[in-house]
Design a protein around this nucleic acid. Sequence first.
DNA 1: TGATAATGACCGACCAGTCAGTCATATGTA
DNA 2: TACATATGACTGACTGGTCGGTCATTATCA
Lengths: 211, 211
Amino acid sequence: MVEKRREKRDPQQRRAEILNAAFACFAERGFAATRMEDVAARAGIAKGTVYLHFPDKDALFTELVSGVASPILGQMGELVANESVTPRFAVSMFYSLFRREVLETDRRHLLRLVLAEGPMFPAVAEFYHREIISRGLGVLRILLARAVAHGELRNPGIAETPQIVMAPALLSIVWTTLFEPYEHLDTQKLFDTFLDTLFVPAGDLLEGGAQ
Amino acid sequence: MVEKRREKRDPQQRRAEILNAAFACFAERGFAATRMEDVAARAGIAKGTVYLHFPDKDALFTELVSGVASPILGQMGELVANESVTPRFAVSMFYSLFRREVLETDRRHLLRLVLAEGPMFPAVAEFYHREIISRGLGVLRILLARAVAHGELRNPGIAETPQIVMAPALLSIVWTTLFEPYEHLDTQKLFDTFLDTLFVPAGDLLEGGAQ
DNA sequence: TGATAATGACCGACCAGTCAGTCATATGTA
DNA sequence: TACATATGACTGACTGGTCGGTCATTATCA
């Protein structure tokens, strides 16, 4: 008979532990296939305890995907506020930030969850649009407008469809979580190539600049 | 007491009816939330009958998403075989084909299913990679190589990452099924703009060509 | 009148959510 | 300090309901 040790924790900490466990479970098995008991076990507590902190499974999920709202956008906001930073540099920073902080960490599974379960959870989709997508597009619009003014875009029309800039991020998420076992995608090259497609080559910026 | 009319059908036809019903159900509620009884009801038959045609729910789902493998790739194959068709025209045909045959039909829900449930069904992901993605990339590689040879790409590096060409298709699927209620995306403009970003403007093709 | 297809009541595994009871700790009392 | 009592976080067996899958029965067909 295993002796179960009870342990009281600071509610905030316990909450965080449950969210961590839930993240791991949802990320690796999806919403439907994850049992509340799995989450509890992973957090090292009993099932009932989970319900002391979250009203039900849906709430746990919604809170989870909403709560991990990345601090990336914050960094982007600062970056774009600085007029001396070129749009190309800002976008390239966004891409490498995305690669380092999302694509190459467990957070990529979170984004996958939003893609996969979003339609089932309008609250989640709405939240992500409002907090992440909408804000990101706002930053991009500023950047792209500035880029157009300086003639840095190969196709100025991009400024009217800033979603395009997000396309490689989406592609990389889907590819790495769906097709990577069958065919490797070099995401570094993907982002670099895309950047070179969006922006005119450095040498062409000062007119007459020979490459 | 309602008198239920039994009906015998050609097995092929019945199979198709079940698949249609399953498509509708899975598309609107996802795999987990769809009950076999829903599928049966939608097909106008009893639950047990479904099991006369498919061994279990997984098989039904797998068969469904595999079976609707689009004839689009076939059309693309023919198009690219014709040397006189310019790469830009071929890609633009692909985009409009995709818009007309997938994005603006119920088939878009099928693609969304693959994205959402793919990781849970390796067989599905593997199938889609092998039958759709892999073939599509093959066609694209040929097209892009030809485009590079004729100096039609703004960034020849694209030829090494043909996945990029698929990015707007992915973006449009995800956007329309996830964020469309909150913010409209003009997919026509999205694809047009992307095309203009990939390929050099028509006037620049013949060197010295004035715009 | 078999042979075949279809039915839907039924089974049992599974699981979200509940709640009566437990016990480590904090507080009050002598 | 030593003991009694109160608190509430924690537990896990249990419930009620759901749903994938089965199969004895019934209807239809050749």
